[in-house]
Design a protein around this nucleic acid. Structure first.
Lengths: 217, 217
DNA sequence: AAGAAACTTGACCAGTTGGTCAAATTCTAG
DNA sequence: CTAGAATTTGACCAACTGGTCAAGTTTCTT
């Protein structure tokens, strides 16, 4: 995508393609909202267009079909996902590394709950779009990091916990704060989850998992 | 619901109402499948009728509207949920009680994945139907059991872990095996999760959480 | 047995949905 | 400035959806 930008990364007022870029961005953002709130089938292109402040025909002009738009949204989410994965290498300190990873995942749930919900919906639906990604990139990542965890265990830095299932634990405990937000709010009696709630969550998850894996801090 | 049944609980061949009972059951089962696979908006009454082997008009004859049918499905799921909650009282042994609770939840994810997925979908959608249940029954349950966990902590039987967030951990780590089944299968490279997979999952979750809470076994 | 109640079902309908299109307008490059 | 490309948009459409209905069939009650 050829986009003109000045040194500060701002899009130039009169750069060619700026309309395209702005409208695509507006639509993608609107689509993220609507897909997250209503699911793929529940989302209508009309609702997305409304939220983007554009006529429906415009949405189709930029993305063709609803399914293509959904794909574009999913793609941008996966890009985020991969960034957030961060580094876990054998040289680093287990407590610090895993602690950091857990907090990063939780922060992501808080900052991008829509992305998390769309991802969750996609997986529950059987991952029609993401199944390739799961079987390749994600699987490789887990295989890779599992090696590190096993080395830590061999070095006596942690218990020999099954690495894949441990990652499942970390993913689920952190994602649940985005996907099941309503449930947590209902149980905790909150209108919105507060800073303290997230701090308690982070502390609880980190403490339990690190101690549970026999990782000294 | 007045249903005639013999001493073994079997519905009598010629008991009045047996047609109604059988068809309602067929439709509910079909609806559970379709709602779990496609979500509320994605599910069509025609698809549900097809799966139940009945004409669409028949579905409407028994349940009126799609939304009423959805409600009926949700109700039957919540009934299950409440049963599965089991007993957690201060006299019981923490390790045994929590261990049992975790295994029961995981078994439920394995045996009734459709129910779990419908529940997840409902919560992600903002719990339009279940929000009352979350704010009353579920919240009360957590409040009640939190007292027990605090007593265990005071008695030195476990660390003073935040009870609500601990329950969130247990729920998410066990439910993820139903809701995110595709993801686990992709990562583990399985066509289906095996007995061993579930045993490893149960062991990992139980070990990490119990040890992480400082519960001796 | 026979009338009443419950059930079955194909045909039908109005509203919604994703998607198209052509005419009008705005940009952009030379 | 101007021709061609890109964008905008209201009107439109075929397919599908949840839901209805009336006429027939089966089951139940007495």
């Amino acid at each position: 995508m050829a986009v003109s930008a000045d040194s500060a990364g701002q899009v130039k007022r009169n750069a060619p393609g700026r309309v395209r870029q702005r409208n695509r961005a507006k639509i993608l953002q609107a689509a993220e909202h609507v897909f997250a709130e209503r699911g793929y089938d529940g989302a209508t292109t009309a609702a997305i267009a409304d939220r983007a402040g554009l006529p429906k025909a415009n949405v189709h002009y930029y993305f063709g079909t609803k399914s293509a738009l959904y794909r574009a949204v999913i793609d941008s989410i996966i890009e985020l996902w991969l960034e957030a994965f961060g580094d876990i290498s054998e040289d680093s300190d287990p407590a610090e590394t895993l602690g950091h990873y857990i907090r990063a995942k939780l922060a992501h749930s808080r900052e991008r709950p829509l992305a998390s919900r769309i991802f969750a919906n996609e997986i529950i639906r059987g991952a029609p779009i993401l199944s390739d990604y799961l079987k390749t990139d994600l699987r490789d990542w887990v295989t890779d990091k599992s090696r590190v965890l096993r080395q830590w265990a061999n070095a006596g830095k942690m218990d020999p916990v099954d690495p894949a299932h441990l990652f499942f634990m970390i993913w689920s405990t952190t994602q649940t704060y985005a996907d099941f937000d309503v449930q947590m709010r209902a149980v905790l009696g909150r209108q919105r989850l507060t800073d303290e709630d997230f701090e308690t969550a982070a502390a609880t998850i980190t403490d339990v998992i690190l101690k549970g894996c026999g990782i000294a801090r």
